[in-house]
Amino acid sequence: MQNLKALSYKLRRDVVEMIMAGKAGHIGGDMSVMETMVSLYFHAMNISPENRNDPNRDMFVLSKGHCVEALYAVLAEKGFFPIEQVIKEYSQFGSKFIGHPNNKLPGIEMNSGSLGHGLPVAVGMALAQKMDGRPSRTYVVMGDGELAEGSVWEGAMSATQYALDNLCAVVDRNRLQISGTTEEVMHQDSVEARFKAFGWNVLSVDGNDIDAMNAAFDEARTVKGKPTLIVANTVKGKGSPVMENKAGWHHHVPTAEEYEQIMKDLEAHEKEVL
């Protein structure tokens, strides 16, 4: 069985290479969301390059689209495209590997970038799966700062109205957004209670613990009659003290010195869990 803990750190290094080569990217959120992405693509979801057009595949929307580098790393590892191509082309002139998800690329269902869009879209997907009696599920990943968008709550309401138990949303709760902490910018401390009040099943776990994420996705699958929200409590910039819990690293491109240190830290983490 694949060591998903080690994989999460290896893919973080791929993300850093991408950002260094493209001189752009949302590194902090990429690092916090990595275990969520690895758990989805290597544990929870029925998706692969072979079944990417199968109507019974699981559907995924990256609503916090700015963390597309983490998605590229995971999709490359799944075999949708070579990682070398991503690192070479990311953010370059004329590239398909742009700074937000783009469904001209294999493996990406919906374009995103503007926040607050993913949950309503995922509701539509889950509804279509229900209408057609499919066994498949729909997953959507949002940021915590994103929850200030009103459209998130429109989607939250309709998900329970239609009892979409085939829908599982994740909030990457890293507690930081571009201007500071979420609590300073727009408070989200009661996110669990808010979603419960909207009728959701809510799980709150350590989002940088791959075992906890795998277990949460497994549990969500067993809940009937309502959608599940997983609050993935994470550390922004997870993997290196150079960037951990620093709002300034929302989209900072590492200097050469920072790059050296980050790669050392990520390799050390990877070895530790191998």
Partner: peptide
């Protein structure tokens, strides 16, 4: 948004 999700699924 829901309409787009429905369309994506056929």
């Amino acid at each position: 948004g829901i309409a787009a999700g429905l369309a994506k699924c056929g």
